[in-house]
Write a protein that binds this DNA or RNA. Structure first.
Lengths: 220, 220
DNA sequence: TCCCCTCAGGTTGTACGCAACGTAGGGTGC
DNA sequence: GCACCCTACGTTGCGTACAACCTGAGGGGA
């Protein structure tokens, strides 16, 4: 009874990895929080081994920091760190967006357009506004775009800069004007892709990330 | 007697990580080679546990690929992959070089100049030419530069694109003209940094990587 | 002859136990 | 009273045993 054999479907270590990553990205595990292996193992109902592997991989991604015999902590980023992360994201994601223009099919564009439109709806001020739901859709939009770039190297480099940084976890920080800009950018990116103009799409993405940077880390 | 307790100084898993990474980077472990945990463990005189951790981290770096219950293989890159990797390196390393211009002290520049000069010497055609020694010096030059950029995010992103790719492991592929250009670039980068001109330095670095790309993957 | 099923071999995935390390607290000597 | 040492505890690092899984070969049936 103590050890529930029937658990999730996937490998235990992958479940641990996914759960921990989600907990960190959503802020459920605060930055700087100490992560004990036994504590996490008990919480997830696993042994220390898969938890340990998950922590190792998270450390490689940069989400946690491990020190000697003292365990792991959730990485906390300084203002300069965040600034640099946005710098890299701007360079890389705009590049990926340009490449996406060469590979996106009509179906892909319809899918992206649907995401952009949906975000426009639930992001609009009013009773139906749902800022929390935006997070998932936004992640989906950027992930889809990165996928369309068909450039594993770009994806790997971006993953090195914190797997969709802590920075993408909320839209509550956006003021109305910035939020409207951000959502309009998504639509414009799709338009640029439809026009087959990679440079245009890349420019909008660069603006998009600049806008996000201003919101999340403030003016330079 | 069988288990030699007195081994290296550092943690066992870090030794395994370093040894495996070196073996892959030098080509001692060929691309596509199957990496059995027990085999590696015996070879390194350790148990499977630290080997397993090392493989996990190498997988995160992109040097090995793991599949289901089938173990790990040394990643092999297609022509397109290499092309994309150089693309990212050009974007990121030139950026890092520009930043280095803002942080490098006179001592730093002297150090870089010494490296560049030394490479010029042992890279020059003649009896003293030592292409193998260039590898280490070149790695050192680029690493020092990346360090001077003081941008952990840039370093992390670059690390995601294969920790100094398999691509930097030899200079034997260079024809005399390309090699001369490459070595001259190092010197010119130092000159640009001395002049405090980050844009110049970045441009040279971009050229430097373009040159390397042409040698390693051929014309586009 | 071809296909499918079964089984054996080898591999990875997980759990658990022990040892090493770092840390904090109390006690003792100066 | 203060500083230093020593001890005890909690943690991580590693080794080993067992279970789950994939793969390939061989035999039987259609």
């Amino acid at each position: 009874m103590a050890t529930t054999v029937e658990r999730g479907a996937g490998r235990a270590s992958e479940r641990a990895l996914a759960d921990l990553r989600e907990a960190i990205l959503t802020g459920d595990l605060a930055a700087g929080a100490h992560l004990g292996e036994v504590e996490l193992a008990e919480r997830l109902g696993l042994s220390r081994t898969p938890v340990r592997e998950a922590l190792t991989r998270l450390a490689a991604e940069g989400l946690v920091e491990t020190t000697a015999h003292r365990g792991a902590r959730v990485t906390s980023f300084s203002r300069d760190d965040l600034d640099a992360i946005f710098d890299v994201r701007r360079a890389l994601e705009s590049r990926a967006t340009a490449r996406a223009a060469d590979h996106a099919t009509a179906d892909d564009l319809d899918e992206l357009a649907a995401l952009a439109d949906r975000m426009l709806e639930i992001g609009a001020p009013g009773p139906d506004q749902d800022l929390d739901a935006l997070v998932g859709l936004n992640r989906g939009f950027h992930a889809r775009l990165l996928d369309l770039a068909q450039a594993p190297a770009l994806a790997a480099a971006l993953a090195g800069v914190v797997h969709t940084p802590v920075v993408t976890r909320t839209f509550h920080a956006y003021d109305p004007a910035s939020l409207a800009r951000s959502l309009a950018h998504h639509v414009e990116i799709v338009a640029a892709l439809r026009a087959g103009d990679g440079d245009w799409a890349a420019a909008v993405m660069a603006s998009h990330i600049g806008n996000a940077r201003a919101v999340m880390v403030g003016s330079r």
